[in-house]
Amino acid sequence: MYRMYDVVIVGGGPSGATLARLIDQSKSVLIIEKTDEKSISKLCGGLIAPDAQRMLGKFGLFLPKKVLVDPQMFYVESYDLETKNKQRYQRFYLNINRKDFDNWLLKLVDRNVSISRNTKYLSHEYSGDSITIQIEKNGKRDFVESKILVGADGSQSQVRRKTFNDFRYITKYISIQSEIVGGVILPCYEVYFDRGLTDFYGWTIPKNGTNIIGIALQGKDAREKYERYLKNVLGNNFQEVSRRSTVIIRPRRLNDHKTDKDNRVFLIGEAAGFISPSSAEGLSYAFRSAEALAASINSGKNTGKDYRKRSLRIKFNLFMKNIKSIFMYTKFLRNLIFKLGIRKL
């Protein structure tokens, strides 16, 4: 007999941990997380944008000092590497250690929630009124059953692949990021545009005495483009300490956002396609979608119908971000904004 849960969540990152924390304690919940506390952190800039900060405030959470890194930044420098135009505007980002942040969120989950780390989700199938979920832990395969399965497993969501099989239609980039010492990097969040390299953007962020630099690229020559980007931004006087890469998604179509299927399988965060197409910011959408699904599960109503309704505001916000992208990534419009001194879109 398999262990039965009300909700099984695949992924213990910000969206999965938040959902587990917000679901009513009367429901049995299992989080399946493929990493352990010592695993390397998710590849990202490690910044909490204002929208995500507002969600943390809405939840009544206070960031512990241990998740913060120096410096805390109050402005952004934007550069167009082709035209040499630049702009500075005020924006406050919380600079964090992403691994410590994710572990902190997971530790906020109620003790009644079961957490299985070092565990991989493999597949699922319907079995009467429940879902049988195949998992693997320490090389051994096992099964659990649940009334609801939630994919909170990020941009490469295996739950979404097994449920919708539509990832090939979503625009993807390879995000390459290095930790470096040397080079001239300001104590702020720097953003770089260069249509010769990408139709997205690059970034530099200082972190506790070192710096990270990265860019989102497409094409088989992404590695070559990355070397050009490093030289364009840093020159030759720097040392690369480490380099990592990952695939990120940039949903541009309404159909890229998937929320549920058969009132039994649900997606939140990046797994649902909830990530900004203008900045690739995902934390605020992880929090918002987790909050929406938790409210739907707790309501006792038709969970799928209620979650789709609650997700409409998220989808509209992402639609507006796509409109914003036109201004940010169309060269003429972006440089017009620079010249006019517009500080915020």
Rank of each mutant, 00 (worst) to 15 (best):
M1L: 02
Y2A: 10
R3M: 09
V10K: 02
G11Y: 06
G16P: 03
R21K: 13
D24H: 15
S26D: 15
S26R: 13
V29R: 03
V29N: 04
L30G: 07
L30Y: 11
I31A: 10
T35K: 13
L43A: 07
G45E: 00
A52W: 09
Q53C: 09
L63M: 14
K66P: 00
D70A: 06
K86D: 05
R88A: 02
Y93E: 07
N97W: 09
F101W: 12
F101N: 09
F101C: 09
D110Q: 08
V113R: 01
S114K: 14
S116G: 01
K120A: 08
K120N: 14
H124M: 06
Y126C: 06
S127A: 15
I131N: 05
I131L: 14
T132A: 09
F143E: 07
E145W: 02
L149P: 04
D153T: 10
N165M: 12
D166M: 10
R168D: 14
I170Q: 04
T171A: 09
T171V: 03
K172L: 01
Y173A: 06
Q177A: 12
Y189W: 12
Y192G: 00
G202D: 00
I205K: 05
L217D: 01
L217K: 04
K220L: 07
K220T: 03
D221Q: 13
A222I: 01
Y229V: 09
K231W: 10
N232C: 00
V233R: 00
L234R: 05
L234P: 05
R244Y: 05
I248C: 08
I248D: 02
R252T: 14
R252M: 15
T259N: 04
T259K: 02
G269A: 09
G269N: 05
E270V: 01
F274S: 01
P277N: 06
R288E: 13
S296V: 03
K301I: 03
G304V: 11
K305T: 13
D306I: 07
D306Q: 09
D306P: 01
R308Y: 12
K309L: 11
K315C: 08
N317D: 14
N322A: 10
Y329Q: 11
Y329W: 13
L333V: 08
R334N: 08
I337C: 06
K339H: 10
L345R: 00
